[in-house]
């Protein structure tokens, strides 16, 4: 954690554009990862999401 913090501080100071790029990429990767993990967990523990999706795919909904 200390190492990552230090690296981010240096990047922020020396290369603002790359810091901006790293910010966006980090958020995107973590966001996609968390979405995937959440989907897997939801599927393991319950089918509520699938029930809603099946309902919505029926004609008239």
């Amino acid at each position: 954690m200390e190492g990552i913090n230090q690296w981010l501080v240096e990047l922020n100071k020396n290369s603002p554009v790359w810091f901006g790029v790293v910010t966006v990429l980090t958020m995107a990767i973590v966001g996609v990862l968390m979405a995937a993990i959440a989907e897997v967990i939801l599927k393991i523990f319950g089918v509520k999401g699938e029930v809603v999706e099946r309902f919505l795919s029926q004609p008239g909904n």
Binding site: G20, T23, T26
Partner: peptide
Amino acid sequence: GAFTYGIKGRVEIIAAV
């Protein structure tokens, strides 16, 4: 917005994660 503020050096990435 994250990119713009990142370039301006005003993003705390660890807190955001």
